[in-house]
Simulated assay, not measured.
Amino acid sequence: MEVILIVLPAFIIFSIGYIGQKNIGFDRKSISTAGLYLMYPFLAFRTFYNNEVTLDYLYIVLFCLGLMLILIVIVTLVTRVQKMPRSRSSAFILSSVFMNSGNYGVPIILFAYGENGVKYAIIMMVIQSLLMNTVGLYYAAKGSSHSTHTMKESLLKIIRMPINHAVIFGLSAQLFDWTVPTFIMQAVNLVADATSPTIMHVLGMQLATLSKEVIL
C-alpha cells in the first residue's frame, strides 16, 4: 500500500500530460528539449551548490561504473550464447545497461525520500548521462554500419550539454565558497522546482502518442 501511495502522485501527473496530449495536442519534442536544456541545468546547479561534496559522490560514481560493467558482461555473454548479430547485440546492451534515471527516477525518489533523496538521484542522473554519451554512443556506433559518430564528436556532445556546465558551476561555487545572490537563487529555485513536473507531463504526452508511433 505504501508503494502505491508513493507512485500514485507520479501517475496523476503523467495522466495530466496524457489527457492534455490526447485532447489538445502539444509539440512535446519542444517541451522535452526545453526541459533538458533549459530546466534540468537549474535543478543540477541547485543540487551541487547546496549539498556538500562528500565521499557519497565517489560511492555513487563507483556504483554506476560497477553496475554498468557487470550488466555489459552479463548481456554480452547472453548475446554470444544466443549468437546474436552485432547490431542486435549492441541494441540489447543499450536497452539493458543504460537506464532512464532522470525523467521517471527523480520524481519517484522525490515522493519516496524527499529532497534528501533527490540530491543523490540528480548526481546519479548526471553520471548516467555521461556514461550514455560515451560508452552508450560507442555501442550505438558499433551496432550501426551507417553511424558517423567518433569519440571526438561524443566528447564534444558531452561538453555542449548545459547540465554538465551547471554541475561544474554548482561544484565550483560550493568548493570556492562563492555566495550566489539571493535574487539569482530565487530564479534558480523557481525553474528547478518546475523541472520534475514538466518532465513528467512530457512522459504522459509520450504515452498518449506511443500507439501512433508504433503503428508508424
Rank of each mutant, 00 (worst) to 15 (best):
L69Q: 10
Y113N: 11
I109M: 13
L77K: 14
L65K: 04
E153C: 05
A44K: 07
F26H: 08
L175W: 08
I4G: 07
E2L: 10
I31H: 07
M200Y: 00
M68F: 11
K83T: 09
V81E: 07
I108Y: 03
M124Y: 15
V214L: 09
V202E: 04
S30W: 12
L203D: 02
R46T: 03
I13W: 09
Q186L: 03
E115S: 08
T47L: 08
L155Y: 14
I6W: 06
G170F: 07
F183K: 00
A187Q: 04
F11G: 00
I127T: 10
S87Y: 13
G170I: 04
V106T: 15
L55M: 14
A208I: 00
L58N: 03
F63W: 10
F26A: 09
V61M: 11
I72M: 10
F169I: 06
M1N: 15
R86M: 07
T150Y: 13
Q206Y: 02
T79A: 15
M205T: 10
E153M: 13
D193P: 03
T195R: 04
T54H: 06
I159P: 02
L207H: 06
F11M: 11
Q174W: 11
L207P: 02
F11Y: 11
S90Q: 07
S96D: 07
Y40R: 09
A173N: 04
L216W: 01
I13F: 06
N23D: 00
V191R: 08
G17Q: 08
S15L: 14
L65A: 14
N50G: 08
M99S: 12
V106W: 01
K119Y: 00
I109F: 04
M200D: 03
Y59F: 11
I168C: 03
M68E: 08
N51H: 14
M161D: 09
L171P: 03
S89K: 12
S90R: 05
M185R: 00
T209A: 08
L190D: 07
V214Q: 08
K152V: 15
Q21H: 06
I215H: 07
I4V: 11
M68S: 14
G136W: 05
M1A: 13
I24Y: 15
S32L: 15
Y120E: 02
Q206V: 09
L5V: 01
